[in-house]
C-alpha cells in the first residue's frame, strides 16, 4: 500500500532576479514498510523535498498525497494536526526540549494528542526501552550523549503512532558507534513493526542499509534503485 504519493512536485524560490528551482518536477511513491534513503549532493533539493512531504513547506506546484490525503490543500491548522497524527520527525540536531527529561520529551507528543495519562506513561516506557534507554527515563538531554539524544528523538517520533518517519540527516552528528546503534534500532522498527522510514543522508553507512535509494540532483530524481541488503566491512 502506498503511503506517500508525490506527483510532479515543484518548489521554486524567488531570489531577486533569479528563480531557484529547488525541486523541479519530482514524482515518486513510497509504500508502507519501506526503508528509503534520499541521497544527493548539498543543494540538490533533499531537505526541500522532505519538508514538502512532511507538510513543513508548501510546494509551488504538484501534489503531495499522504495516506490518501492531499496535504497541500490543507489549511495551516489542519496541516499541523495532520503532522501530529501521521508523521514522525527526526532531525539532525535532535531538537529535544532541554528542560524536559527523556520520558517527558517522548510523552509530550502524546499530550499534544490528548492521550490519557496511563496510556502515555505505558507507551513512553515501552518506546524508551525499545531504543535502549530504559535506564535514562529521568535524564535531561544535556546529560545524554548525541547518540542517546537521537534515540530519544526516534522514540518521540514514534510516540504519536505515525504512518511513517521522516528523518533529515539523522546520523550527521553521530559517531560511527552511535550511527550503527541508531541504524540497528531503525531497521528493527522497520522489520518488526513495519514502520516506514524515509530519510535523507550523506552517510554511506546509512545508504548501504537502505532498501531503496533515491538519488536527487538539481531538484530532479536521477536514479531510484531497490537494493539488496549488502553488508559492508565498515558496518562490522
Amino acid at each position: 500500500m502506498e503511503i506517500i504519493q508525490i506527483k510532479d512536485l515543484h518548489k521554486t524560490y524567488d531570489e531577486g532576479k533569479i528563480e531557484v528551482h529547488a525541486v523541479n518536477g519530482i514524482s515518486l511513491t513510497v509504500a508502507e514498510g519501506e526503508f528509503t534513503a534520499i541521497v544527493g549532493p548539498s543543494g540538490s533539493g533533499k531537505t526541500t523535498l522532505l519538508n514538502m512531504i512532511g507538510g513543513l513547506d508548501r510546494p509551488s506546484g504538484g501534489e503531495v498525497i499522504i495516506n490518501g490525503t492531499e496535504i497541500t490543500k490543507l489549511s495551516s491548522r489542519e496541516l499541523i494536526n495532520f503532522r501530529l497524527n501521521n508523521i514522525g520527525f527526526v532531525f539532525q540536531s535532535y531538537n529535544l526540549i532541554p528542560v524536559l527529561t527523556a520520558h517527558e520529551n517522548v510523552e509530550f507528543i502524546m499530550q499534544l494528542q490528548n492521550k490519557p495519562q496511563t496510556e502515555r506513561h505505558k507507551r513512553t516506557i515501552e518506546l524508551l526501552e525499545s531504543v535502549g534507554l530504559g535506564d535514562k527515563m529521568d535524564v535531561r538531554p544535556r546529560y545524554l550523549s548525541g547518540g542517546q539524544q537521537q534515540r530519544v528523538a526516534v522514540a518521540r517520533a514514534l510516540a504519536s503512532k505515525p504512518r511513517f518517519i521522516l528523518a533529515d540527516e539523522p546520523t550527521a552528528n553521530l559517531d560511527s558507534k552511535a550511527t550503527a546503534n541508531l541504524l540497528e534500532i531503525m531497521e528493527r522498527l522497520n522489520h518488526e513493526e513495519k514502520m516506514t522510514f524515509l530519510f535523507s543522508t550523506h552517510d554511506q553507512r546509512v545508504v548501504n542499509k537502505a532498501h531503496r535509494v533515491i538519488t536527487i540532483e538539481d531538484g530532479i530524481v536521477i536514479s531510484d534503485v531497490e537494493q539488496q541488503h549488502i553488508v559492508h566491512p565498515s558496518d562490522c
Binding site: 512532511g54 513543513l56 495551516s76 491548522r77 499541523i80 494536526n81 503532522r83 501530529l84 497524527n85 520527525f89 532531525f91 531538537n95 526540549i97 507528543i109 499534544l112 494528542q113 518521540r156 504519536s160
Partner: peptide
C-alpha cells in the same frame, strides 16, 4: 520551530 513541526498548534 520544532514544536510547530511535530504538531504543536499555534
Amino acid at each position: 520551530g520544532m514544536l510547530m513541526a511535530v504538531g504543536m498548534n499555534k
